[in-house]
């Protein structure tokens, strides 16, 4: 699992930092290092750009895994530089931003937008394959999730917008239902595609979703 992120437009970062002349930067050594959005190199580049704007960067860190509990230790070890700053600019996914906000009593500002949880299907190419809906249908759809891979999240087959196996929103994008059809056909399980799927329970786990493992 990787949390896929994209850096916000620099203008937006600048606006969020308005009024904060001293700041601390935190990156993440896991997902955002891999996606090159919040690893060491990107943190140092951000530091340079902010210094050019006249900001004082009191320090920086690349936390091994920002969403992990060990983040608390990293925060304590760097407490001096953090206390010296007026806010923390976070270059991890929103999970890390959330975690840091629970340990630091200062404004926590995201430098990235968290896009999706994805897998790397070829070097540098990340794909969303699960929407974490809480009602897995992969057993009936040949391992391809229609809720995620179909733009409209349709459960009962393709819409009329598909053509030559592509999606109406993007001619480069595969139609999920054509892929499901092809794979089920290969497996001799096309009868599964004929099965009616009733409307989904959108509240199978009402938001915000929590669970206690006992």
């Amino acid at each position: 699992m990787k949390s896929i992120t994209k850096q916000k437009p620099f203008k937006e970062i600048e606006q969020q930092l308005d009024g904060f002349d001293r700041l601390y930067i935190a990156g993440c050594g896991t997902c955002t290092t891999m996606t090159k959005t919040g690893g060491r190199e990107e943190v140092l580049e951000m530091r340079e750009r902010l210094q050019e704007l006249g900001k004082l960067v009191t320090g920086w860190i690349v936390i091994p895994t920002a969403c992990d509990e060990m983040t608390e230790v990293a925060v304590k070890e760097n407490n001096g530089a953090i206390q010296n700053a007026k806010c923390i600019l976070v270059m991890s996914c929103a999970l890390g931003v959330h975690k840091l906000s629970t340990y630091i009593d200062k404004p926590v500002i995201p430098a990235l937008d968290t896009l999706f949880i994805g897998v790397e299907d070829s070097p540098g190419c990340f794909q969303e394959v699960c929407a974490q809906c809480g009602q897995c249908v992969l057993g009936e759809t040949a391992g391809i999730c229609p809720l995620t891979a179909c733009h409209k999240g349709l459960l009962n087959g393709p819409c009329g917008g598909t053509d030559n196996g592509k999606c109406e929103v993007d001619k480069e994008k595969d139609c999920a239902w054509t892929l499901i059809y092809q794979r089920l056909k290969e497996q001799g399980r096309l009868d599964l595609m004929r099965k009616y799927h009733p409307p989904r329970d959108c509240n199978v786990a009402p938001r915000p979703r929590t669970i206690k493992i006992t």
């Binding site: 087959g157 196996g165 054509t178 004929r194």
Partner: peptide, 11 residues
């Protein structure tokens, strides 16, 4: 006229 036609016919 969709191609492939079979998924459309199933629907």
């Amino acid at each position: 006229e969709a191609k492939p036609i079979e998924p459309q016919l199933i629907k």
